[in-house]
């Protein structure tokens, strides 16, 4: 007699048979291992200035070269990736939480609240991403916290719409009606019955959003309106690299390449997750 499969193992099975998700995880794992190894074994400190070795091209001692302060670019990328990723995660978690709560509430109860929140998301959708971010930066001051908030603000409408449409579709399901007839409170129904069933697409949105959050941090810091030096975020390093792009193109090139590498991993993982979690879509497309 075979043991019953544990709940959730179907997801793991589809993940294992999904090449795209595997490629994404492999790329991310490589980045993660590289970051950890560099941070453990790099002989340089990210803020060690060495004026004897300014703007050296990539070599064995400095695989990514050095910047205009003689700092080792690879070491700085390993530290900067953590800063940028944390900013993006913080923004996505905040935007995801607020958006999901708003979306689930308006999908569940509907009515005037629903109309108002949907108009509100439409309004947020009408601002170009960086314009919204820039106004917020002026209001809150530059820095990592404001960048996170800007990313959150850009992603609130995305999560709100997704959560709303999924919730209003789930509301009519039999198990929700059953829970209601059993006298469960709306909060309990939303948390215990609906949320687990709409979590998958939200997770996909989160994973896809992480990559865009990193791009947005990089873009804002690149223009000079985001994270401020000396905090070594990837965007700050790229902004620095653009100032001497002709003399030392490797700083901007290799930092940006690392950014693209991480985002590629996140995007592949997001695509794979979407396919694995949405069998309807997969069946239709296979």
């Amino acid at each position: 007699m075979t043991a019953p499969r544990k709940p959730g193992s179907g997801m793991w099975y589809t993940f294992r048979s999904n090449r795209v998700a595997q490629a994404g995880s492999a790329i991310l794992l490589f980045a993660l291992v590289a970051i950890v190894l560099v941070r453990l074994f790099s002989p340089y400190d990210p803020n060690d200035k060495d004026y004897m070795s300014i703007l050296l091209g990539p070599s064995l001692e400095h695989p990514f070269g050095t910047d205009s302060f003689g700092q080792d670019v690879l070491t700085r990328v390993a530290y900067g990736a953590q800063v940028s990723l944390l900013i993006s995660v913080a923004g996505l978690v905040l935007g995801g939480l607020v958006g999901t709560v708003i979306g689930m509430a308006s999908g569940f109860w509907g009515g005037v609240f629903d109309t108002v929140t949907m108009r509100f998301t439409e309004l947020l959708y009408s601002f170009p991403t960086y314009v919204l971010a820039l106004c917020l930066m002026l209001l809150l001051g530059y820095g990592s916290r404001s960048v996170s908030l800007a990313i959150a603000l850009v992603y609130v409408p995305n999560f709100a719409r997704l959560a709303r449409s999924m919730t209003s579709a789930t509301r009519a399901e039999n198990y929700v009606t059953a829970a209601r007839l059993m006298g469960q409170s709306p909060a309990r129904i939303l948390l215990r019955e609906i949320l687990p069933n709409i979590a998958a697409p939200l997770l996909v949105q989160f994973s896809a959003g992480l990559g865009f959050g990193i791009i947005m941090e990089a873009g804002l810091s690149f223009v000079g309106l985001g994270v401020q030096p000396p905090t070594p975020s990837l965007g700050v390093m790229m902004a620095d690299g653009k100032d001497y792009f002709q003399k030392g193109p490797w700083v901007l090139t290799l930092t940006g390449f690392s950014v693209a590498w991480i985002i590629l991993g996140l995007n592949l993982l997001g695509d794979g997750l979407r396919d694995a979690l949405d069998p309807r879509l997969r069946r239709r497309l296979s």
Binding site: I215, A218, G219, M238, L252, G256, A260, I263, N267
Partner: peptide
């Protein structure tokens, strides 16, 4: 291409 920051 989606994974590349446009300014980079």
């Amino acid at each position: 291409t989606i994974s590349m920051p446009d300014f980079w």
